[in-house]
């Protein structure tokens, strides 16, 4: 070669400024039916269906609406009665499309079977609504700020049932129930009367955002406690952990989220025994 340096310089020019990026397209994306189904004691089942979205597509309302499943056949049965659910848009929820029942109402201790059929695929699951329980008492306690209180509930826990609890509160000015982001008794170690402090985590858009986890004197608060079984507990424990750590950086994450929906589906179909209580903060 007349001048070997020309080749070297040429190679360097090609390589300069070479910034690699993540190749999303070759990641082996497979379509999954994402199921979020709930049947509460005393209420009709509600199922939200969507498809997972490849990472190459952005997170926005259009993408979410495009991935909503609106043409599935959804069947719920309690062993005796089988009901095909009807559907409608539900703008209060994401994904904003719900399949709902009008015949089968949830009963504590009873098992419910779910079947979703879509485009030649079918996914199935079943869940049992835990046995009934009671909110024993509610505690209102002072804080360092005169006008604010903390709130606790006491629940009688039966260790043998292997139930955990999700707890929500709704202040009079809020439009929605806000969850205290911890699945209570998620390791099923507690037994007997157990007191649990409520720490709701409102968003910026919630009216009670400035109060944070406290409750203002004079406020009317709805407390909602949901008992869930061990399978559901594991799912929401994983999900809570996932969102708390934001699935983030460098802590080794080995466990995938658990699911009780078989492939090609993913998600949760769960029953819950619900108890509510309304109190005035004093």
């Amino acid at each position: 070669m007349r001048n070997p340096y020309i080749l070297l310089i040429g190679m360097l020019i090609l390589l300069v400024g070479c910034y690699p990026d993540i190749d999303y397209t070759s990641r082996g994306y497979t379509e999954k039916i994402i199921v979020e189904g709930i049947i509460e004691s005393g209420k009709y089942p509600k199922i939200y269906l969507s498809l997972n979205v490849p990472l190459s597509e952005s997170v926005d309302s259009t993408t979410i609406r495009d991935k909503v499943i609106r043409d599935a056949k959804v069947t719920v049965s309690d062993g005796n009665v089988k009901e095909i659910l009807t559907s409608k848009w539900d703008v209060e929820h994401f994904p904003p499309y719900v399949y709902f029942g009008t015949e089968i109402k949830g009963q504590t201790g009873k098992t419910y079977h779910l079947k979703v059929e879509k485009g030649g695929y079918s996914v199935e699951s079943q869940t049992t609504i835990p046995l009934d329980f009671q909110i024993d008492s509610v505690y209102i306690e002072p804080t360092s700020i005169d006008s604010l209180r903390t709130l606790s509930v006491a629940i009688k826990v039966n260790k043998d049932r292997k139930n955990a609890y999700r707890i929500y509160t709704k202040k009079s000015k809020d439009k929605r129930y806000i969850e205290t982001p911890i699945v209570f008794n998620s390791d099923f170690s507690l037994d007997g009367l157990q007191k649990f402090t409520l720490s709701p985590l409102p968003n910026k858009n919630d009216s009670s955002f400035t109060e944070g986890k406290y409750f203002a004197i004079g406020d009317v608060v709805d407390i909602k406690v949901m008992a869930i079984d061990s399978t559901t507990t594991q799912f929401f424990k994983d999900l809570t952990m996932f969102s708390v750590i934001a699935g983030n950086i460098s802590i080794n994450e080995i466990k995938p989220l658990s699911s009780n929906i078989a492939e090609p589906g993913f998600g949760i179909w769960y029953g819950c025994a619900v108890q509510t209580k309304k109190i005035i903060i004093r």
């Binding site: 990641r27 994402i34 969507s50 990472l55 994401f94 999900l239 993913f266």
Partner: peptide, 13 residues
């Protein structure tokens, strides 16, 4: 690393 996303229980997963 993830390959897709979805929303469940009002959370991006």
């Amino acid at each position: 690393l993830p390959r897709s996303w979805y929303i469940i229980d009002d959370k991006v997963v």
